[in-house]
Simulated assay, not measured.
Amino acid sequence: MSEGVLLRYDPDHKPATRQRILASAGRRLKEDGIDRSGISALMADAGLTNGAFYSHFSSKQDLVATAIAQELDDQAEAFRAHGSTPEALEFFIREYLTQWHVDHRGDGCPSAALLDEIGRCNESTRKTYSEALMGFIDEMAIALSPGSATVERSKALSIYAVLVGTMQLSRALTDPELAARVLDRGVENAMNALRSL
């Protein structure tokens, strides 16, 4: 390159790069966990060097919080795409508690993959998670009762807790038949909760 020639990036380059980092980090974090996902691995997954990290995030915790919030926002958007109805919530429950979800942690729910580690993160990360989670819970609450979503928040949160806990337990078990029975029972429990509302 001749002296004085500057490389100029398209104005969308930095936001697009940030989104690429968030997408690959979300998957890596869910696959390997927060503690086992170093900045080098997270940046390599995005096809970038460590040097680019600090032009997008102030710290690893900043990246973790932002990636998890993005994952929850994506989950809420996917839920919205099926319509905000009790039938959509039933579909979500049945799709959530599947063997596919057990086997594809990196493509699944951030809460089921990372909840124990999120609980040990700093307050700022937990606050970001809480806000993003409640955005998704509000989507579920709208499906329960379109006219009074705020009243249904606690009910939606209870159903979500059943789903997340069931998924975590099923993933932890070494007996495939027992793990499958846990999933089946989780669907039954979540559906009973949905129908009793």
Rank of each mutant, 00 (worst) to 15 (best):
I159G: 04
L157K: 13
E71D: 15
P176I: 06
L157H: 08
A179V: 12
E152S: 15
D184Q: 12
M134G: 00
Y54E: 10
S145V: 00
A180D: 12
T49Y: 00
T17W: 05
G147Q: 12
L48A: 13
G119D: 05
Q19G: 08
L72Q: 01
L48S: 09
D35G: 11
L72A: 02
L197G: 06
N192L: 15
M167D: 06
E131I: 14
P86R: 14
D103F: 07
G165R: 07
T98L: 10
F91W: 04
R105E: 10
H56M: 05
F91N: 07
L173D: 08
I142P: 02
L29K: 06
T66R: 12
G165A: 12
T174W: 07
Q70W: 10
M140C: 09
H104F: 09
Q168N: 08
N50R: 12
S37I: 05
L183M: 05
S170I: 07
I21G: 11
D12H: 11
V64H: 01
Y129E: 10
A76W: 06
L163W: 04
G119H: 10
H101T: 09
G119C: 03
A156H: 01
V151C: 07
Q168Y: 06
I118W: 04
A81E: 15
P86V: 11
I39M: 14
Q168P: 07
G186P: 00
D10S: 13
G106K: 05
D184C: 03
L144M: 14
L7H: 11
G108R: 01
S111V: 01
A88R: 04
G119A: 05
D32M: 04
L72E: 01
M43S: 09
R185L: 13
A44L: 06
E139G: 10
L133Q: 15
A44N: 09
A161L: 02
A52P: 00
S111H: 03
G165N: 14
S58Y: 02
D107E: 15
D45W: 00
Q70C: 06
T166V: 05
L114D: 01
F79T: 08
A156S: 07
A78F: 08
P176W: 02
A193I: 07
M1P: 09
D138R: 13
I34Y: 07
R171D: 05
S148T: 13
S24I: 11
G33D: 10
L48Y: 08
G165I: 04
S130I: 00
I93C: 02
D73G: 10
S145W: 00
D73L: 12
R171M: 09
S59G: 08
L22F: 11
Y160W: 14
K30W: 03
S59T: 15
T150I: 11
A180T: 15
I39C: 13
T49Q: 06
P176F: 07
F91H: 12
G165F: 04
W100F: 09
A23C: 03
F79K: 09
D184M: 06
V187C: 09
S58F: 03
S59Y: 02
